[in-house]
Structures are given as C-alpha cells and as structure tokens.
Design a protein around this nucleic acid. Sequence first.
DNA 1: TGAATTTGTTCGATTCAGAAACTAATCTTC
DNA 2: GAAGATTAGTTTCTGAATCGAACAAATTCA
Lengths: 405, 405
Amino acid sequence: MRKIDTRDFRRATRTTSREINRRIVLNLVRDHQPVSRADLARRMNIGRGVVTSIIQELIGEGTIYEGATGHAARGRRPTMLYVRTQDRLVVAVDVRFSRTFIMLSDFAGTQIALESFETILAPELLVAELIERINRILAAHGAHGRCEGVGIVVPGMVERMSGRILVAPQLGWRDVDIRNAIFDGVGLPVSIENAPMACALAQMWLGQRGNSSDNFVYVTVSDGVGAGIVLNGQLIRGDSNSAGEFGHNPLDPDGPQCLCGAHGCWEAYTSNQATLSRYLGRELSPIWGQSTRQAVPLTIEDLIARARGGDTRAANAIEATGHYLGIGLGSIVNALNPSQVFVGGEITAAWDMIEVAVREGILERALTRAAGATPVVPEQMGGYPRLRGATALVAAPHFAAPRVA
Amino acid sequence: MRKIDTRDFRRATRTTSREINRRIVLNLVRDHQPVSRADLARRMNIGRGVVTSIIQELIGEGTIYEGATGHAARGRRPTMLYVRTQDRLVVAVDVRFSRTFIMLSDFAGTQIALESFETILAPELLVAELIERINRILAAHGAHGRCEGVGIVVPGMVERMSGRILVAPQLGWRDVDIRNAIFDGVGLPVSIENAPMACALAQMWLGQRGNSSDNFVYVTVSDGVGAGIVLNGQLIRGDSNSAGEFGHNPLDPDGPQCLCGAHGCWEAYTSNQATLSRYLGRELSPIWGQSTRQAVPLTIEDLIARARGGDTRAANAIEATGHYLGIGLGSIVNALNPSQVFVGGEITAAWDMIEVAVREGILERALTRAAGATPVVPEQMGGYPRLRGATALVAAPHFAAPRVA
DNA sequence: TGAATTTGTTCGATTCAGAAACTAATCTTC
DNA sequence: GAAGATTAGTTTCTGAATCGAACAAATTCA
C-alpha cells in the first residue's frame, strides 16, 4: 500500500496497460524460460491473443526471441521463448582503492572479458584510462553495436540522478563527475552506483532465482563495512543517497577507535583492517592513508591462509570478527526484518570458520525467533559481486516494473 | 525502480488505467481542495474531458463532492470539488497496558467522540467489552450507516493478512485473534496494527500536508521504544512483521540491564521507565509485570512537572534521555537516511528541555552532514497519534495507489 | 483417416485516453 | 446592452488496449 506523491506522480496514458503487461510477460519469460505463449497466458490468466501481440512487440524490440518448438503430450507443439541476453552486452567497471576492474559481460552477468589495472586516483587521468580501455575492449570483441551501457561501481556516495560522486573517502574524491566525461568518450549511457548498493542490485537481479519476495540486506565487509538495502523489490537509497551506512553504528562506546574518529563502530570490529589489527595486536589504521601501498604487511587472505595452516591466533581473530559481524547483523535484522541477509567480502572465504560465531552473534541480539532465524548467505567466491552489480545497473532498468501513479 | 515479483503480480486489465488515474485525481483533490476540474486537468496534463468522467465516477461512489462555485478573474466560474471526509466515520481503538481508548472520528481524523476504560487483559472479555462499547458509540451518533470500519492499534506484533496478534508482551498475549470476533460483533471491517507502525501511518496519511516525499521514521518512546518505518510512501512491515524494532539495539554492552535481558539496549536508556529509573537511581523494572498497577510510584509526566518546578535531578534525568535518544536516532539516520524523523510519546512534552541534547546525540553519531541535519519533529501534544493511526488504518486504503505489476 | 487436443492468430466488442468541437457562464469593451 | 474574449465543463469521435470467441495450424491417438 503506497501513498501517491502528488508532487511527483505518473498518470496512466493509453499505453500504460500495455507497458505494464509487457514488463510482466518479459519477467515471466525471464523466470521460466523456455516458456510458450500458451504457458504465459495461463500464468497471467489472460487470453492467448493478448500474449501473441505482446510477444510480437517484445520480439520486435529485441528483448526476447523464439527458440525451437517444445514437446507436448497431445496437440500442437509450442514454440519456446527466451530472453535475449547473450548478445546484449555491458561494460562493468569496479573502481577500488588499489585496483580498477573492467569486465565485459552479457545481460545475464556472464563474463566475456576481464582486465584490471592499478587505480589512478586523479579523476581526470582515471577517466582517460577508462575510456581508452573500454573502447579497446569493445573493439576487440566487436561489441560496439551490441553494448547497451557502462555500469560503474565506486566506494562512495553517489547521487543517482546527476551521476555525481558526492564523496569517496578511499579515493579522496569529493563531488566528482566522471559520468559525463566517460559518456562523451565511449558514446554509451553510463550509470554509477555505490558499491554495497550495487551488490544488492546484483543479488536481486542476477542472483539465484526462485527466492522469496525481494526483501533483504546485502552487507559488504571489506576495507569498510556497508550495506545495500532492498525492501519490497526496491533498492533503498535514502533521502541523500546514504542509506545502508550501518558500519559506524556503535557496538561498544569503549571499543577500539574507528577510522571515523568514534569508538566501537561495527566497522572497527569487522572490517578487514579491523581483523588484521586484532591479529597484529595494534591499532586500526587506514589502508588508504598510507603513503605506499606496498606498506601493507598482511592481507586478509594471508590471515585466512594462516588460520587454515594452524595459526590459532589467526583463527581466533577471524572467529571474533564473525561474532561481531553477527551482533551487528542482529541489529539489522531487528531494524528491518529482512527475509535474508547476504554477506560479501573477502571474509566469506573463511565462512566455514565463522558461520557458527555469526549465528551466535545474531541470536544474541535478535528480538524475535523469526528474526533470529533469518538466513545468512555468504557470497560465493569468485563471483565478482561489485562487477555483477555494475552489470545489473545497466540491465535492470530494462526489466523493472514501469513507474506508475 | 522495482523488480516485479513473478510469483505475486497484478497484471493490467482494461480498467487499470482508469483505476490509476482515478486515484491520482482523488489524491490531488485531497491535497489541493478546493479545486476545480479544469485545475485538475492542468495539474495532470490531461484533457478536461477525462477529468469530467473521472469526477463523475468519484462523485458516484461518494468519495468526493461538489461545493460552491469558485471565483475567476475572467470566464465561467469553476465548481469546486472536495473530498468527502466529514460523514465517513471510523472507530479507532487503542489498546494499551493500562487503559483502552475508543474514538469515533471521521476520515480526516477529526475527533467526534472519545472514551476510555481500564484494559481487560483477558482477550475474550476485552473483545466483549469492545463490541458493546463500539456498538453503543455508533448508535449514540447515528453512525451505523456512515462508519466504514474499525481500526485497532495494539502494543505488539501483528500479522496484517490474518489480523492475528502474534505477540504482545505488555498484554501477555500470544497468537490471539480478536479481529474476527469483533467483526462478528460489530459487522464492520476490522484492521489491526502494531502501535509504532500505526503512528507512522497516521503521520503519512493524516500529518501535515506538503512535506517532501514520504520517507521517514516515526519513533515512539513510551513503555517500550519502537519505530514505524516509511520509505517511498510505503510502510515497511518486514518479512515477519517485526520491522522497526530499534529499541533493543545496543548502545553500550556495559549499560543498564534491559527488560529483554540484554544490557545497554537503546530502550534501557530512553523508555519512560528508564528515565524514571535513572531519576530514582534504581534498576529498570517492567511496569506491566507488577501485580498492581497502583504500585507505580511516579509517572513520566510527574517527572517532567518536577523538572519544570526546578528539580535539577529530574531535569538531568530527562536531558540524559534526550541525549541517548539522539544517539539512537543517529544510528537510524545512518541506516535509513530518512528525510525526517518523528518522535512520539510522553517525553515530547519536555521537548524544549531535550531538543539540544537530542541534536547533539545525533551529530555525535551521524556519518554525513546531510544525515546529521535530518529534521527531528516531536509529535504535538494531545494529538492521540495511536488513535489517529487506527483511523488511518481504515481510511488509507481508500486513497492508496492501486497495486499494479 | 478422422476425432480430439493443444497452440497460436484474427477479429469484433468494450473500455479507456486523447483531441477537438461544443455549450455554458462570466467579464470586458464598444 | 450587445459583441467579443475567456474560462469551465461536456460531448463526441478516434486510436490503443483488453476481452472473448472463433478460427487455423499442428500434433497425437484411436
């Protein structure tokens, strides 16, 4: 039940019904392919005639295609329909503090090419490098006519409408506009998004099918700890694009000092740096504040390897992170009561070592039994969630419900 | 941008466009009354002919009516339109631990009658009492044909679909169905809702007009501390109806013990009992666990009165509550980045005494400048937010956007 | 070979938005 | 006070979409 915003609404025109039904058909094909027209008519409780004309339009605009005929026990055999994803391409870009990744993928998120380079922190130089590399990749794969857009994920706050990066502390950026420059250089639409939010988008649009209604939180544990919130199938962006900043909510005011200045933030207990600092027995210090990147003595991957090699102090540091992670998740679960929580980040490589501790942490804080039982799902390794998020950024608008009322 | 749930969608029929536009017209009249047909046509960027036929339907179903003709500098004078609220009535019920309130009001939330009685904790007896009183009120005001429903607000978790009260600790209820019994006894549709969520609904539907897009959190500070979350004009209910439970998120694990068993919950710092306990220098104890209600020695109203009378210890206890309230609000503001936060509860009577402390608390935790500047609006006194919420429960569905796609 | 069954298309009826013409009511101007 | 201008509201026709039924196509089974 939504209230209509009388200062910002979209009235129905005479094509609105068709737009709605076309999107529903497209999504049904997406979820149930291969599927026939008659099947769609049954699922939508609609006449087959309407399906015929909608399918004609969808084939015309190139979003779906007819495949081989299927099999039927009796009667005429159905022609099966598929969503066209293989030759609709996206350039996904993930800008991180240390490295920048560029992936060419199709609408289903399937990787076609992947490369990376050391991030250039000066925005203008990074933009130039990106334009050159993107054009080279597109040319190398003959993808210029088939690419529908560029999706860029950055570790910072993004104003979606203007595409401006308001602030990205790790990159040292403030109010930077890279979208227009890249659009000019590549000639494709460009979307930019904050990393945790993009991960949540990826989970919603490119994750496993058949999950219950999209109502979840995607928590990324990396240099920082942030979250993307999806409620009722919608990404929650917030009034000033900063929703999901759970990382600096306090667990304990007497806890370790966080990079934000406060004490005992969730992030100060659970970020990769926090886990390493716990192991090394020293204070938290910013990875991106250091003059040389090589100065980082130990990575979280190293730590996990040591733990697996029998280093109990490493294992304890990691398990403690799991416990604190769970406590924070307990708060989130109380606050939003999502149907699932996803966790991404390097720490998921050690999920078997922390799962129990995470669960205990949640139960320690969860108020209701249902909330305490909220499934926590680690991102599978090697999935490139941020790059998939960048892909979803471009692909999702083609499948989303039309805005109405 | 919403994802379509392929297991639960609503396709467009040939009347869908009209439904959408009818609701938009209704809401425009609601927000801008008195307003003419020509005005609506201009606001919707639509032909006057369409407006004529939509208005005809709305008048026919009795949701709006024609008033006197307005004035125009030149040309024919417009006939002004109004939403019919005065003779569409609602019975609003607020069940609290100590007393139960019944209000007869119209669709605009205007109070017509109000009575209260000591809450009977046995569900069957309470239901019988409610039925008798509701019928008596309806008869006394000749309201039987004009009343559109009963809205009930309870301090507990409610499953909206079945109308069952899953758990209400203050009342000692667990999995109680009072809706069907009241429906049978009164013969009107009955809606039940959790108190903070209902308050949020009241704020959205019966609050001040002209606010920015509905994206806020309504925090109730009372015996417990809970919140109703509204994002993009939609009440967030959660996967198992428990969204908004910020009250037991921790501020400090070494803090005072909360009634939930944990230490340092937000509620343990900010509930009325917490404030009183701070003043009295004793442990928190549950108001509803006490054998006799008269055992409560001091109310929060008394405390505020003492503070106003010059009792600095009372003033300090209240101001401390304001500070902790602000800290918790800081976390909420980080997490959801709402455009506003509303605060309800007895403590708002002392808002002038705590406003600065609340603000400081928020700034202490807010991550971005925009989040730190989120307006915090206290509920005005004597507004009966829960009863207004019960009214909104019945009235809002008549004005909400039609569900589509 | 023909009946039954299922898929997909076509076509008229109905319901809407959209556009324009039309009527009604009022003010201004000559 | 009549003519013209202006605005409000209604009517009417057109085109787009659903809805339902009839129809053609393709396949299995008796």
